[in-house]
């Protein structure tokens, strides 16, 4: 089936098999391999992207469902060559160890801050319930999100 999707500001059209998951469309068809597959069972959030501004686990969505939508992946977050404040936060607070969960953590955190501009540490922990870090580096992840929220005016 033919779909048209705006990804990181660029419209792409492709013919896809209905059973192709959005995450495979992004990674295998478009080469946007920043988005990861961790669990493949809707639990870990490492595949998180934004669909029309909302955080989505892209392993739990067919590419055909995204027809007509706007998608942002981790590759589309930095604007004009400068990192998004959330990316800076993860860098400065060392919010990653192996880095596998990081793109999903960052996308989920950006979406979370849109709805909760002034989060407490506990809000952040609840807000990121859909994202698992196998390295268990949660402490610094929470610090990174907090730092980003302050930088973004929270």
């Amino acid at each position: 089936m033919k779909i048209s999707v705006k990804i990181n500001g660029k419209t792409v059209e492709r013919d896809v098999d209905p059973r192709m998951l959005l995450v495979h469309f992004l990674r295998d068809e478009l080469g946007l391999t920043g988005t990861k597959v961790g669990c493949d069972t809707s639990q870990c959030g490492s595949c998180t992207v934004h669909l029309n501004g909302e955080a989505l686990k892209s392993c739990t969505f067919f590419a055909v469902q995204a027809d007509g939508a706007e998608i942002t992946t981790i590759e589309g977050l930095a604007a004009n060559g400068s990192l998004h404040p959330m990316q800076e936060g993860f860098w400065e607070k060392h919010g990653l160890q192996c880095g596998y969960c990081t793109p999903g953590m960052i996308m989920a955190s950006v979406a979370f801050l849109k709805k909760h501009a002034h989060p407490t540490e506990e809000d952040i922990r609840h807000g990121l319930e859909g994202n698992l870090c196998r390295c268990t580096g949660y402490h610094n992840i929470v610090a990174a999100v907090k730092a980003a929220s302050e930088k973004m005016g929270g």
Partner: peptide, 9 residues
């Protein structure tokens, strides 16, 4: 329910 991603969709 679940987490923010699940609640969104």
């Amino acid at each position: 329910i679940g987490d923010q991603q699940v609640r969104n969709f």
